[in-house]
Structure formats: structure tokens, C-alpha cells
Write a protein that binds this DNA or RNA. Structure first.
Length: 606
DNA sequence: ACGCCTGTGCGTGCCTATCTTCTGATAGG
């Protein structure tokens, strides 16, 4: 909790009087850099410094700062505007705070511009190639004047690279392969896509003779919204058999490396998979190690150091003596910490919370009692009202809200007041049959360009809940977009703000909007915010979940189901909610029906 | 570059496997 605690403290002291003097609006200066922009700039500076062989600690300071700023629950720009002191953040001193201010003010950085004079931007892209680190990139640049990926490609084909000191025929071959693979795949995949590849592969390995445990670890296990590569941990008395089976997986395109305990393959789809095989007594330690995150691993290893112990992927050691390692619990126990759930292992305060015995009791799939966002064949869904309701019941739910699109979304055949009135009648009729599930009457109403809702209050007033959403004009300026949605929230019938950033992972960037301000308005207004569980969206971000929790704004985890099978996406939403530190009480749709109806009614009244 | 402690300096995130090439670079969490 270190980061948040510090932010809160500074808010309470210095910033409070500043905020009182300032008008509440314009929290985020127009054109300012977002946290992600700042983090990217710091990463680039670190990369270039590393190529220039700068002081390693300086490089680390930039990387650290990138991680801290990237994980902030508030925009650094807004914090500055409120007069907060950024040097209170861990790892941010006078210098880096100045550079953040510079990035916020000018959108650029003098240090970065200066570095580009000697080391052009293309070098950073070279660094991303597997097999190329700072030393080799520098050699390519110094000796062959290579600055871009295409120049490297040409040099490789001309055979100029293999003669450099430190390079050889093997390196040449691997780099050429890496360049091909780069155009083929590249980037991170959505969590749900990773699941499609990881689970069958894990199942395949479980059939290996003599294999014990098999688990998918890495960012997949931490439930990140996207996954870079797939990491698998297995136990076996005889690792060689499992390794052999792994590299001969039918979907294997290439074997990148193969050792007695670790191998890496690339699948035909371009996805990289690492397998680590250890003895059964090391399973827990290997799982901790391979689950990460790296920052979390370093943090717990430091704690061990402080106690004169050593943690590696084989166990926790005192000298040569192994104290633990068979289970994850035993590893954490050895350093006197409760087991930290994988979704929290990002070194974003979970270690401090564990020490203070204040880890959150995270929400689980079974805690959910309903889904508050679903569609039927009346608009763009694929199943009928009754099919959707019964499918929800089959998931053990007490209630499901049917929330069709409104008329403005013509492509989805959105409802006008007359058609919505007809559906209200159908739902009432269904509910009278007492089928063991309650359908809530709702709508996913468009927030129009000017902030008005797409349907009149006369019909909205007849519903149990109103989910409001943006489906058009994604490119408004930050100020306009924020204003538009705030105006939408002013309508007294709105109960939930749906997929609040509008992003589609890998396809559409989030629209530019002041999320902290939206959350604050939800708090004042007594309404709720959605965490859309669709694997293409996963929208609310984990950092914003955490902020909602701090503000006491309940989050509704909804699948936005367009078919009965879509209800299964709930697990992805729960994963993201857990990454956002949410417990059962922080989530709206864990409430039993009667309590939920009270909350919905209160949100409308206020 | 941070951060602590001091007094303008100094120490400073963990630990291991694999490959390629020759002692270390890169990658992995």
C-alpha cells in the first residue's frame, strides 16, 4: 500500500489547501502527458542509457520510475495540478519529479531529445528483438552504423554481422529468424487467447509419463489483461521425458532453447512458451518464481536476504539447507508472510499489506449472484430472453438484467420507447412465472454526443436499472469527452456507467477521458461503475478498480453477454477485479436480490 | 538517479539457465 498511502498522505496535507483554493474543474491540463506516456518516455530513456553503457543504477532508477508512474491510481498531471509533491512517491526524487513535470508541461523531455542525438530511436526497436541486448545493439551501431530494423536485415543478409566480435553464424541465423517472427506475430495477446493455447498444452503435458503437477504461471496466472508469452511449471522425477514431450508438441514451430530443466518453444501461431521442470519438493518455489512478477520476486527475495535466507526457484535456503519450497504457502511462510494471491503480485503495495496483515479478501467467481448487463435477440444478441434467463440461472445466479441497446445504435437494432415498453411487458410476464431467476428490466442507453441520453425519462423511469454507455464520437478531446459523460451521469435514472474507457484491447485505444473525475462523480451521485468482463474489453482498468474501492464506489462486474455462452466470460472480469484489489463487498452484484434492488433504487433517487 | 545519512558522499532490487563464444551476454520471472 506504500504508493497509495503516500498519495493519500500528501493529499491530506499540502494539497488540501491548494485544492480548496483551486476550482475543481480542469484537473487534467489539456494536452498533458498521461501516466502511460510518462512511463514510456522513462523506459525509452532507460533503454538508450543502457545502450550508451551508462551507470546501471541510473538506468534502474528510470525503469523503477516508469513502473511507479505507470501503476499510479491518479494521473500525475492531475496530481501536479493539485499541487501535490511527487517526490513523496517511492523512487521519485527531485530530478525525476522535475522530468515528470517537464513531460506533463511540454509533452517531451530534454534528456530524451539529447540521447536521440547519439542514439536514434530505431535502436530501441532493435533492443526488442530476442537475442539483442544493449551490448550487441551498441556494437551493431558503432561498427556497422546500424540504426533500424531494416538496416539490420540488410546487414544480416550481406553476411556483415557474423564477422563482428561477439557475433557468429548462430547469432546471424537466430536474428534472421527473429525478424521473420516479428512480422508474423508480435505484441501481447489477450488473456482469453492465451487461455486457448495454454490450457490444451498444459493438458498435453499432464499426460506425460511420470509427470506430477503442471501449472500455467506467468502473467496468465496473474490474470493480466494481456499476456506476452506462456509460462508453464511442471514437476517430475525425470525431467528429460517431460522436456522431450514438450518440444515435440504437435504445434511446435521452433525450439529456441533446450536444457535439462528449462526449454523454450515457439508455436506455429508465433506464441512463445517456456517450460520449467523441477523436482516435486521445489514445486511451490518454482511456481512463485515463474508466476512473478519480476518486481514481486525481487521484493520477496530481499525480505529473505534480510533474514539471512535465500529464495530461488528450488526453495528457500538457509545456507545449503532447504527450509521450504514444496508449496507456495511454505515459501511465504518462511519469510513470515501470508500467501499473497497471484493477481496482487506486482509490487504495488501487496508486500506492505501482507506485512501489515491487511491483504484484501479478494472476490471469487462464486460470490457473484447475478449479471447486470446482457442482450437478447431483440437487439444484437443471439439468444432469446428466456434462453438468456435460464442460462443465467444455470450459472447459479439469482438475477440477470436485460439491457438492450437503445435506438441510436441502429447497427444493433437498438430499442425505441415502444419496443422497450413491449420488452418490459415480456419481462414482467416471465417474472410472474416464478422460474427461479429474476429478470431485471434495464437498458444500455447511449450517452449521445451532447451528453443527453438516447431515451426519454418517461420510459427510463419504468426500469430497474439504467446502464449508460458511449458508443460514438470516440475522438472528442479529453475535456469534451469528460464533460459529455458527466452530463450523462447527471440524469437521475442512470445507475451504472458501462465500459467506461471504451477500449477494445489491441483494436481501439481507450477514449481520452478523466477517469478519476468520473469515479468521483459516481461517488457523489451514488451510482455505480461497470467492470466489463468481455475479454476484448476488461474495462475498468485494475488501477481504476482500486481507486473506485478507495472512493467507496461499488463496481458491477458484467459480461455484456450477447449469447448464453458469453456468461462464461465472468471469470476474466473476476480476474481483473482481483488485480484491482476488490473484495466481495466492493462489488455490486454480489448482493442478494433484495439488497441489490434497494441499492439500485437509492442510486436512482439520488 | 534515489535515498539515507551525513554534512556535498556513497552504496544502491534477486537469482538462475542457456547459448555462444570465449568469458559474458541474454533472457526469464
Amino acid at each position: 500500500m506504500a504508493v497509495l498511502a503516500k498519495v493519500r498522505r500528501s493529499k491530506a496535507s499540502a494539497a488540501q489547501s491548494a485544492a480548496a483554493r483551486r476550482s475543481v474543474s480542469a484537473e487534467f491540463p489539456l494536452g498533458a502527458a498521461h501516466n502511460a506516456d510518462i512511463a514510456a518516455a522513462f523506459e525509452e530513456i532507460a533503454d538508450l542509457l543502457e545502450i550508451e553503457n551508462a551507470n546501471a543504477f541510473r538506468v534502474r532508477a528510470y525503469r523503477n520510475a516508469a513502473r511507479v508512474v505507470g501503476g499510479l491510481p491518479n494521473e500525475a498531471a492531475a496530481m501536479l495540478a493539485r499541487g501535490e509533491d511527487l517526490t513523496e512517491l517511492p523512487g521519485i526524487g527531485k530530478d525525476l519529479a522535475g522530468k515528470i513535470a517537464e513531460l506533463v508541461k511540454t509533452g517531451g523531455s530534454a534528456v530524451l531529445a539529447d540521447l536521440h542525438k547519439h542514439a536514434p530511436q530505431g535502436l530501441v526497436e532493435l533492443l526488442r528483438l530476442p537475442g539483442l541486448g544493449p551490448k550487441k545493439v551498441k556494437a551493431l551501431h558503432d561498427k556497422l552504423q546500424i540504426e533500424t530494423v531494416s538496416q539490420l536485415h540488410r546487414a544480416l543478409q550481406d553476411g556483415r554481422v557474423r564477422d563482428l566480435a561477439g557475433f557468429g553464424a548462430q547469432t546471424e541465423k537466430r536474428l534472421l529468424q527473429a525478424l521473420e517472427a516479428k512480422s508474423a506475430s508480435g505484441g501481447r495477446m489477450k488473456l482469453a487467447v492465451a487461455a486457448q493455447y495454454a490450457e490444451p498444452l498444459a493438458e498435453y503435458l499432464r499426460k506425460s509419463p511420470g509427470v506430477g503437477q503442471v501449472a500455467v504461471a506467468g502473467s496468465y496466472r496473474r490474470a493480466r489483461d494481456t499476456v506476452g508469452d506462456i509460462d508453464i511449471v511442471a514437476t517430475a522425477k525425470d525431467a528429460a521425458t517431460v522436456m522431450e514431450r514438450f518440444v515435440s508438441y504437435p504445434e511446435t514451430a521452433r525450439v529456441l532453447s533446450r536444457g535439462p530443466t528449462r526449454s523454450t518453444i515457439v508455436l506455429r501461431s508465433g506464441i512463445q512458451v517456456d517450460l520449467r521442470v523441477v523436482a516435486p519438493e521445489s514445486y511451490g518455489a518454482a511456481l512463485v518464481y515463474f508466476t512473478g512478477s519480476k518486481a514481486h520476486n525481487i521484493a520477496i527475495r530481499r525480505i529473505a536476504q534480510g533474514r539471512g535466507l535465500k529464495i530461488n526457484e528450488y526453495g528457500v535456503f538457509s545456507g545449503k539447507r532447504r527450509l521450504s519450497g514444496e508449496t507456495e504457502d511454505s515459501v511465504y511462510q518462511s519469510i513470515r508472510l501470508p500467501t499473497i494471491p497471484p493477481e496482487l503480485r506486482e509490487d504495488r503495495g501487496e508486500i506492505e499489506a501482507a506485512k501489515a496483515k491487511s491483504l484484501p479478501d479478494l472476490i471469487e467467481l462464486k460470490d457473484l449472484r447475478g449479471d447486470l448487463h446482457a442482450h437478447t435477440t431483440a437487439t444484437d444478441g443471439r439468444n432469446s430472453l428466456q434462453e438468456m434467463a435460464l442460462a443465467a440461472k444455470a450459472r447459479g445466479y439469482e438475477y440477470v438484467a436485460i439491457t438492450e441497446h437503445s435506438r441510436h445504435l441502429t447497427i444493433a437494432h437498438g430499442l425505441d420507447p415502444a419496443r422497450l415498453a413491449r420488452q418490459i411487458g415480456q419481462i414482467d410476464a416471465f417474472n410472474r412465472q416464478k422460474r427461479g431467476i429474476r429478470i431485471l428490466k434495464g437498458i444500455e442507453v447511449d450517452i449521445l454526443d451532447d451528453g443527453q441520453l438516447d431515451l426519454p425519462d418517461t420510459i427510463l423511469s419504468r426500469l430497474d436499472l439504467v446502464v449508460a454507455a458511449v458508443h460514438s464520437k470516440f475522438n472528442l478531446s479529453r475535456a469534451q469527452q469528460t464533460e459529455r459523460v458527466l452530463r450523462g451521469l447527471d440524469n437521475p435514472y442512470v445507475t451504472i456507467l458501462a465500459h467506461p474507457s471504451g477500449r477494445l484491447i489491441g483494436r481501439r485505444e481507450p477514449y481520452d477521458i478523466d477517469m478519476p473525475r468520473l469515479l468521483k462523480r459516481c461517488q457523489e451521485r451514488g451510482c455505480f461503475i461497470e467492470l466489463n468482463a468481455h475479454p476484448d474489453r476488461l474495462d475498468l482498468l485494475d488501477t481504476h478498480c482500486r481507486m473506485a474501492k478507495e472512493l467507496g464506489v461499488l463496481v458491477s462486474i458484467n459480461t455484456d453477454a450477447h449469447s448464453t455462452s458469453d456468461f462464461d466470460n465472468m471469470r476474466f472480469g473476476v480476474g481483473q477485479a482481483r488485480r484491482g484489489w476488490l473484495g466481495r463487498d466492493d462489488v455490486l452484484n454480489t448482493r442478494p436480490l433484495a439488497r441489490l434492488l434497494e441499492l439500485l433504487a437509492r442510486a436512482r433517487r439520488s
